[in-house]
Nucleic acid binder design. Sequence first.
DNA 1: CACTCTTACGGCACCCGTAAGAATC
DNA 2: GATTCTTACGGGTGCCGTAAGAGTG
Lengths: 297, 297
Amino acid sequence: MTLKQLEAFYWSAILGSFALAAERLFMTQSALSKRIQELELEIGIPLFDRTGPRARITEAGQNILGRVENLLALRDEIVLAARGPIGLQGTCRFGISELMAMQFLPKIVAAARAAFPDVIVEPRVAVTRELLDDVEKGETEFALAPGTSENPDVLSRPIVSIPLCWVAAPDLVKGKTSITSAELQAYPIISMSAQAGSSLVLQSFSAQHDLRFRRILASNSPEAVASVTMAGLGIALLAEPFVKRFIDTGQLLRIDIEDQPAVSELQYSIHWRADNKRVLAKKIRELAYEICTRPLS
Amino acid sequence: MTLKQLEAFYWSAILGSFALAAERLFMTQSALSKRIQELELEIGIPLFDRTGPRARITEAGQNILGRVENLLALRDEIVLAARGPIGLQGTCRFGISELMAMQFLPKIVAAARAAFPDVIVEPRVAVTRELLDDVEKGETEFALAPGTSENPDVLSRPIVSIPLCWVAAPDLVKGKTSITSAELQAYPIISMSAQAGSSLVLQSFSAQHDLRFRRILASNSPEAVASVTMAGLGIALLAEPFVKRFIDTGQLLRIDIEDQPAVSELQYSIHWRADNKRVLAKKIRELAYEICTRPLS
DNA sequence: CACTCTTACGGCACCCGTAAGAATC
DNA sequence: GATTCTTACGGGTGCCGTAAGAGTG
């Protein structure tokens, strides 16, 4: 029995797929498949059921999964105890929303590389729904995203709350900086794609005021939304820190909604699976939390 | 990092010697030395101090030793959980005194081989002192021997108490079956070597009655002591079950000591290091305990 | 000089990746 | 036919044992 075999088994069990596990471990499916076969031969019992279209973990596999998890965690602790953080190796994947990425990702990656030079950090930028899905499936160690997961296995810890604001090109609203929600309805709305955090706020806003918006763009990129808005195509609901530079230069105008005094805020949290025991994941998650909650310098 | 490296480190640390660890792991010193070097390279810090005549574990090595121990125990538990006892591999060395060996060793070995077919069982027959030394040094997993260890790290659990008796050739004592302790002093004493359990009883007996014996043989073999005694060379203190067959055939005569009404008993126990976490060792130790305390069939 | 660990080197075995095959939807 | 896992095969590397070297009491 080898640590490599156990790691192959572990990731195959967590991800429910040999192909994904092989990708994570930077090897081919074929090699991983054989590693697991050798492990099964070693302990003399099948760990996966290959009868279906995809390999499903057997009861025997489920029985040892927790112990294998503990063993692998112990391996990382041994390295940590002997050499400190710089000795850790491995890969850490995490998800991050674009807005958070613009503000924090460079710092997170830099800090992670400094603390764990031999660790491969793989951030993935996506919209909220995808980020949370990946965490639930075990594909990423944690995610920095708005909202909370409805999955009880996923824990969330708030980090920052970012105010949203309505913006438009000055021409479009003829210089008006304050309109009613009814008036707002007349304008085309430029929004992020439906699965993004700010779109969820937009949905709840429209439901609350019984409004129907005409959306003319659903982009995954806030930059795209901002540029289209600056071109005068409509009004957008965007994160205030993100559009501040455009407001300062006069490219966008901040619009207040008269009958909506309180500005909506997007609550960002860090999300992770409660059963994730990986030492590396925990360290980098804490590091990311630290950076995102630290007062801006 | 590999399990083999960790195991090499573990046994080198426990036994305090690369040579002994290599012997235990059925490999050459040279190969083991390189394995440990590779582990040190892997975690980036020396685990042994080679400046002295023998490799001494460093502080860093000491720091990880407990975790490595847990990791290796977890490996065995994984096999146990998946496959049951028959999946366990490895070597189990234990010590046993000759008298216990005659009565129980075949049963213990047979039971161990039946329960753990892939385990190499290495019993070692020796006298009490050596058996306990080996347990203290970590060379054996446990020992079946009389008495208790003065080392607080060694736990002892009683198994059986075996009565001792004085025996002599009928000719030597002219058929007398009862003598005083003073008369006993006149005869040559044939005893086990000084480090055997029965010799320790003999020492305490002589101290108690302020007697000085003339010893004419110190053998590690009870068979040798019995045969010499049957030849009429002196009186011996031997285990009753062992000499029963000679008494029954008339080759030896049982001698009672008039002023020593209670017969000395040799209390046998099973001894093991309290910090021994090895799964295999524990299983076979319990198996041996079971067999030695089971009513004789 | 006995003992212990290290270094050098030759050979074998293991393990990986490529490529093709089988099974399932 | 797309996806997923398995099997077959060639090649490179890692690891072991033998043998010689170095340091210590």
